[in-house]
Amino acid sequence: MAEKKYAYYSGCSQETSSKEYDISLRAVMKALDVELVEPEGWSCCGSTPAHTVNHVLAAALAARNLALVEKMNMPVLTTPCPSCLTAFKEANHRMENDSFKKDVNSLLDNPYNGTVDAKSSLQIIYEDIGLETIASKVKYVFTELKVAPYYGCIMNRPPALAKFDDPENPIAMDKILSALGLNVCDFAFKTECCGAGYGYTKKDMMKELTYKVLDMARDAGANCIAVACPVCQMNLDLNQKEINKDRGSDFNMPVIYFTQLMGLAFGCSPKELAIKKLIVNPDKLLKNRMLKSETDKGQDKEKLKASA
């Protein structure tokens, strides 16, 4: 039996455009001996369009899923997608108000009592599993990678709702990546907007914002970006060619899910992690890998040298 068990909501992106996030997360959780249970018959979280139209409707969409989890008697629902996360957290928050709760439950077949806590998979990995366990599972260290950790705009915001990490300078992913033995850059644009919200309506603005994030990552000395949000990933990954064309720049920076990096370090094959799905090919950066035991030896040698 698995050591830890969570209700798991993958969300629509992870079923479609960012399947690799779901695949890699499941692979990592398996390696970490964590069981993920999908609520049967889950539906849309209500994230993007609903809340701009009607708060009760939006909360009802989210609460329907939370009610399923409540029925499973599980206290925590985890989702990799920050947008789904916000939808769940906001529904929970708004439903603390009794009359709002009544309105929402009048729309649902099975009422939701507000007992399920929603947490991002990043938070679960950072807080519940912990850096020590992560470090202990590491088989390979990828020496070429210089990673800029990018959290996106809503993973830790609004702080009163997110209740996780710092809203301006989050460090959870930095620490996880460091535990994998990776070279992590001090990246100032961890939470800057990537512009994805304007992906269709104001393409120029989107490209401007995406450019800034990529540019800052390069300035920070990174050769790839680690992400935790499917929309950021798509946006940063997909648009590099077009930005290069517009600006004469030469970005060719892989944008990799932090779960994929974890999986690679744990010894999963690129196929198991659906690395191929990424647009900007990271293969060249992933070529050099060392057994962790060897890097340890290397460090020991250096230490010996230093002390001598």
């Binding site: 300078n169 001090d186 100032a188």
Partner: peptide
């Protein structure tokens, strides 16, 4: 004041 980098 993390938005100002704290003391980073």
């Amino acid at each position: 004041l993390t938005e100002y980098g704290g003391t980073r």
